[in-house]
């Protein structure tokens, strides 16, 4: 093979490099940082000082768009998580469950939560909790840890009466609580 110090067809090589670079850039730009629909729901407020509950504006929203499941929401889901008020301490997951039609708080609805913490992976660390008369649920856990690159929380509803919802949300390592509201729609 004859070796020169320049490619034989530099424009073809240049085109290949430009196309690969553009393809990689497009693939990265079109991705979502934490995965599709996985918004950051955590904050660093002192959960002990601020018990779960909506502020006044949140208690009466003008509209309640149905909460949609997002990709990855069912990851590691095992049906019928055991009922529990606590999975440890140091991190609070809370929210309000409402009807999508009419925005009414739902009382006695079972919400399932699962996440990885220092005490176990997502399949070990799961609980069912129920909403109160104002539609609020609250679960205290050990802080979530990033076994798969980012701390994330799963919340699901799959009982009869409303359409099932499975969502995956993320938090930051320093967060101490997460707020995840659900608006449940009938049918489906």
């Amino acid at each position: 093979m004859v070796r020169t110090d320049r490619p034989r067809r530099p424009w073809i090589l240049g085109l290949v490099i430009v196309l690969i670079t553009a393809g990689v850039a497009a693939a990265l730009i079109t991705s979502e940082e934490s995965g599709t629909g996985a918004s950051d729901v955590g904050d660093r407020a002192d959960a002990a000082d601020q018990p779960a509950g909506p502020d006044r504006a949140e208690a009466s929203p003008a509209r309640c768009e149905p909460t949609e499941s997002n990709p990855g929401g069912t990851n590691n889901y095992i049906p019928d998580a055991p009922e529990a008020d606590s999975l440890g301490s140091g991190f609070v997951i809370q929210g309000i469950v409402r009807t999508a039609e009419g925005c009414r708080p739902l009382d006695g609805v079972r919400i399932q939560v699962w996440l990885a913490t220092e005490s176990g992976g997502e399949q070990d660390n799961r609980a069912s909790t129920f909403t109160d008369s104002e539609g609020r649920y609250r679960l205290e856990t050990d802080p979530t840890i990033p076994q798969f690159g980012e701390p994330n929380i799963h919340v699901g509803y799959d009982d009869s009466g409303y359409r099932e919802v499975f969502i995956r949300r993320v938090v930051d390592l320093e967060d101490t609580r997460a707020k995840i509201d659900l608006n449940l729609a009938r049918g489906g």
Binding site: L28, G35, P71, G72, G121, Q147, G149
Partner: peptide, 24 residues
């Protein structure tokens, strides 16, 4: 071996940016 669901999700088109970087 740790979690099949999370690994497949990470490699899917819905996976996070960091996973897409890893895949490419």
């Amino acid at each position: 071996l740790v979690e099949v669901d999370d690994t497949l999700f990470a490699m899917s088109p819905d996976g996070p940016t960091r996973a897409r970087m890893a895949l490419i």
